[in-house]
């Protein structure tokens, strides 16, 4: 068990938790948060894998990819929340369930 194993296993756990949340939660904000979990999991996996090189310095390419990914995740989160907010102001619902009454707690 090396340090990189811990990062990769932790990343896989986060990714799985995010998948569960994305499918199980019906509240749209929860879904956005779950998608963020999945992204963070993949970042951890990539950061862990960057450490596998024989040289003491980690591989810079996965690190740069994670940095790119973080910015894309920020963009995704902002757009997701804006869509959820607009959806709420149009319909008064917080889930995609057509039977939900406006103002109902979920």
């Amino acid at each position: 068990m090396t340090t990189y194993d811990v990062y990769v296993a932790g990343g896989a756990v986060l990714f799985a938790l995010g998948t569960y949340g994305l499918l199980e939660r019906s509240h749209l904000v929860h879904k956005v948060i779950a998608a963020n979990f999945m992204g963070s999991g993949i970042f951890l996996v990539l950061i862990g894998l960057a450490n596998r090189t024989p040289t003491p310095e980690p591989d810079p390419v996965p690190q740069a990819m994670v940095l790119t990914g973080i910015v894309v995740t920020v963009a995704m989160t902002a757009l997701g929340l804006a869509i959820v907010k607009r959806y709420f102001s149009e319909t008064g619902r917080t889930t995609l369930d057509a039977d939900e009454k406006p103002g109902e707690r979920r």
Binding site: A16, T19, L23, L49, R52
Partner: peptide, 27 residues
Amino acid sequence: PLAASLAVFALVLRAVHALPDTATGLS
């Protein structure tokens, strides 16, 4: 959702373990 979550967990671990033991990297 639980099954899907466990499946992706296994998939990630499987993908990582399919990598060769020594990575050359681009450092």
